[in-house]
Deep mutational scan, measured.
Amino acid sequence: EPLWIRPDAPSRCTWQLGRPASESPHHHTAPAKSPKILPDILKKIGDTPMVRINKIGKKFGLKCELLAKCEFFNAGGSVKDRISLRMIEDAERDGTLKPGDTIIEPTSGNTGIGLALAAAVRGYRCIIVMPEKMSSEKVDVLRALGAEIVRTPTNARFDSPESHVGVAWRLKNEIPNSHILDQYRNASNPLAHYDTTADEILQQCDGKLDMLVASVGTGGTITGIARKLKEKCPGCRIIGVDPEGSILAEPEELNQTEQTTYEVEGIGYDFIPTVLDRTVVDKWFKSNDEEAFTFARMLIAQEGLLCGGSAGSTVAVAVKAAQELQEGQRCVVILPDSVRNYMTKFLSDRWMLQKGFLKEEDLTEKKPWWWHLRVQELGLSAPLTVLPTITCGHTIEILREKGFDQAPVVDEAGVILGMVTLGNMLSSLLAGKVQPSDQVGKVIYKQFKQIRLTDTLGRLSHILEMDHFALVVHEQIQYHSTGKSSQRQMVFGVVTAIDLLNFVAAQERDQK
């Protein structure tokens, strides 16, 4: 057995438009009618409502009807409940999964919650491996369901041993009777949507819809739904939504950006999952974080739909894509998950301010006199920076000697690579993860907040409520011999709460 199987392995699926269902090699399930009293909570997966979006479509000038398939009504709160249950049931049916076995899954959280929910009911041990950027709410729900959680670096490539995929496979090879159901490759993922989600949409719309818009992560949702719609409703256009920084969209030119990270969760990847059939997507749109969270908040405030950030991405694209539809036509959007997962993220004004998705003037509360002053007023001194090749031991000596707790790590040209902190280095040394002679590049981390000289002290204040420091950066445009230009970030300084307090105190003292 291989040590790991690539999540982007070539698909062996034989589905073709027009091929009889009787030739399918898979076990198919028909939607079942729910009894009045459910035998367990797993029976509350599927049969989610279709809700008309009344205000947002009109606000953006849509002539067509805009409908939302509300997947956050599933038992675990997301569309991923469907595939989690289906993968477990299919693994039980073919004898792969037996009582007492362990389920391991690399996930952005929602599939993990679905699997942990099913594992709690069915009696399996469950280990979820997820990147650090995923919300604390997801972690809390997983723990409450009895799952064990392993976190991995957000910026690790999918084929790196440190990625959530790599760590999951390492655990599988170490733990007896453990299984990775593997949402990236498992046919049960798109089949769950082909058999149930798509049929529900067709039934709820009486077979009449002209466009379907869905955000894409593993691709199982859009693949399964689109294949069924292509068979039953061939005139329906399928629109895929991919965040900026991901590479799922086609044509490839759409993916060209210097951005590699994004805040919206559960969609987009740096590889093409095996289950994603991009041939059934008629057109791709890219979405960005700001519009995703703005539209998610709009869905909550104006439509009462308590959905997550990827739902915002989907609707932001839908109001663009559906401009081509006329009166009497219908566009369906998939709202994948609930706001429950993001209470401390985009639902929080403070978080939105820190990330730059909300401006101070958007909030009406009274601010102190210094709130709208610029960061450049602080008069920061030149920063202490270190090269990635310097040793951890030497870096600790320098920081202690100069009285700093942290320093930016830059390359020879001064471009920011990340940050090192005294606390992080000492804990890594004590844990045996690094040696004093190791290069400081081994303990770089990139989960820090950046701020510009033109940003306000109010925004800085919000950042420092949650973080010990902020890195002050400025952009530099560099022209190359080819005539092309590129933008790079340079370090201007490091600012802490002490710097802000000293500035405010000094100004008030001078005024007296």
Rank of each mutant, 00 (worst) to 15 (best):
V315D: 02
C331R: 07
E265T: 05
L399T: 07
E291H: 02
M466K: 12
E475A: 02
I416K: 02
L464R: 05
K320W: 02
P408I: 02
L399S: 02
Q256V: 14
L417K: 02
M490N: 15
E303G: 06
I416G: 10
N288V: 07
A382C: 04
F492M: 14
H468C: 04
Q435S: 10
G432I: 14
K286W: 04
V409Y: 09
G304S: 02
Q487P: 07
R488D: 05
P408T: 06
E397R: 14
Q302M: 12
S485E: 14
G458D: 11
V473A: 15
P388S: 14
P383A: 08
R278N: 06
G268D: 02
V281K: 02
L501T: 02
K449V: 07
E508V: 07
F404G: 02
P243L: 02
D277R: 07
K359Y: 02
E412P: 14
L254E: 02
S481Y: 08
P408W: 12
F469Y: 13
A413N: 14
D510L: 10
E324S: 09
Q302N: 15
I239W: 06
I477F: 13
A318I: 02
V241W: 02
I416N: 07
E244M: 02
R488Y: 14
Q511V: 08
A505H: 02
I267A: 07
S437V: 12
S338P: 13
C392H: 04
E263R: 02
T496R: 02
D282I: 05
T257I: 08
Q478T: 12
T274P: 04
Q406A: 10
E401C: 12
A413F: 12
L426P: 02
E360C: 08
Q435C: 14
V472Q: 13
H474C: 15
R340V: 06
G414A: 02
F503E: 02
L335K: 02
T389L: 10
Q489W: 10
V241G: 11
S461Y: 05
W284N: 02
T389P: 13
I398G: 13
E291W: 07
L387S: 11
E263T: 06
T385C: 02
Q450R: 02
L384S: 14
A506Y: 08
I390D: 04
Y262F: 08
T456F: 12
V264K: 02
S427Q: 05
K283W: 09
L426S: 14
K442M: 13
M466N: 04
A407N: 02
D438S: 12
T364N: 02
L457P: 07
L325R: 02
E465L: 14
S461P: 14
S428G: 14
V280Y: 10
R350G: 11
G393F: 13
P388C: 05
P388M: 02
Q256C: 13
L460D: 05
E253K: 09
H372S: 11
G483H: 08
V275L: 02
A292W: 04
D438Y: 13
A316V: 07
Y342A: 02
V443M: 14
A321I: 04
F295M: 14
L358T: 02
W370F: 12
M466A: 10
E258C: 13
Q329I: 02
L471W: 15
V491M: 14
M466L: 11
M490L: 11
V491W: 11
G328C: 15
E401L: 02
G240V: 15
C331F: 02
A506L: 02
I451G: 08
T294S: 11
P243Y: 06
L426E: 02
S287V: 08
L254I: 04
T456H: 11
F448L: 11
F448D: 02
N255D: 02
L422Y: 02
G245I: 02
S481H: 14
Y262H: 07
G266C: 07
Y445N: 07
A321E: 04
A470C: 02
T482W: 06
Q447R: 12
R488W: 14
V491I: 14
L471R: 02
L453A: 08
L399C: 08
S348W: 05
A506E: 09
T454M: 13
R330L: 02
Q259S: 02
Q487M: 12
G356I: 11
R340D: 07
N424T: 02
K512L: 11
P388I: 02
K366P: 15
E360T: 07
G458S: 13
T385M: 15
F357C: 02
L305T: 02
D405V: 02
K433F: 13
I238G: 07
R488C: 06
G483A: 09
L254F: 02
T344G: 11
T364W: 15
N255S: 05
E412A: 13
P336V: 05
V495P: 15
Q476F: 13
I444F: 02
